[in-house]
């Protein structure tokens, strides 16, 4: 049965160096909406993102894109999937040897036949969207972390992707710029009908932009639904996260005690 979700994750398990990071993660990403994947650091958010963009093989479970399993994609199919997506990595992942303008022009130069002048105008437009039009000739190393991040977003937008994946958009940004970025993400959804997937641990911006929230805890989906539904949740862990309470209960007292003992 065809579902309204553009991407569907079904029973995804993920392992990293023998340790299980994701446990039976199941959720859907609706098209033309903003989905926020939220959770404390180390809960497997970024791993999940790497699965979604096809950088990490799906071992057990499935990721369905338009009903097709991402794990079974051939190289060509994976490439055409990646032409539909734009990804902002945590550090921005700009190429150090190029100016911001050249960085943003990279996908346009490789994938399109647009004239140089058109590409130049497009890069300036994208930089303007993220508020960096004055910095087009700067090298990434001359910019602050937050600016690099915004430039990375401009590059992710260069090809007008259908699906935009954003990893921690507002970390390292001042509140005003962060709010501007949130606004931009919403505008993109409105104007271009973009499907936006945001990974973040920031509550405030998550509830402001999300159409759907996936809350994760220790590799499991803890809560799922519209922001209001999540807010009304009665689950203890969800409330703890929402109310920003510190983790008081020890994860596993036995293993903690064991690791204190001398091992022979």
């Amino acid at each position: 049965m065809p579902s309204a979700d553009l991407i569907e994750v079904r029973g995804l398990k993920s392992f990293y160096r023998g340790r299980q990071v994701l446990f039976d993660v199941t959720f859907g990403i609706p098209s033309h909406q903003v989905t926020v994947i939220m959770g404390a650091s180390g809960c497997g958010k970024t791993t999940l993102l790497r699965h979604l963009i096809g950088l990490k093989c799906t071992g057990q479970g499935q990721i369905l894109v338009d009903g097709e399993d991402l794990g079974s994609f051939s190289e060509g199919l994976l490439k055409s999937y990646r032409r539909r997506i734009g990804v902002l990595f945590q550090g921005g992942a700009l190429f150090n040897s190029m100016s911001l303008r050249e960085n943003i022009a990279v996908p346009l130069k490789v994938h399109t036949k647009l004239a140089d002048e058109t590409i130049r105008i497009m890069t300036v437009m994208k930089l303007n969207m993220v508020g960096l039009s004055d910095f087009s000739e700067f090298m990434p190393s001359q910019l602050s972390g937050g600016m690099r991040k915004r430039a990375g977003l401009a590059r992710a937008l260069a090809m007008d992707p259908e699906i935009l994946f954003v990893d921690e958009p507002s970390s390292g940004l001042d509140p005003i710029t962060a709010a501007g970025l949130d606004r931009l993400l919403l505008d993109l959804r409105e104007t271009l009908g973009m499907t936006v997937v945001v990974v973040t641990h920031e509550l405030e911006s998550a509830f402001k932009i999300a159409d759907r929230i996936v809350m994760m805890d220790k590799g499991r989906v803890m809560a799922l639904g519209a922001p209001d539904e999540v807010r009304r949740s009665t689950d203890e862990r969800v409330l703890q996260f929402l109310n920003r309470e510190a983790d008081t209960h020890m994860i596993n007292i036995d293993s903690y005690y064991e690791s204190l003992l001398d091992k022979e």
């Binding site: 950088l55 997506i85 992942a93 150090n96 040897s97």
Partner: peptide
């Protein structure tokens, strides 16, 4: 060193994700 830095800063992943 140059390529290694591209690896640790996820620039190679970024290329992959741009279908390059």
């Amino acid at each position: 060193a140059e390529i290694g830095i591209m690896r640790i800063e996820e620039q190679i992943d970024a290329l992959d994700c741009m279908a390059i």
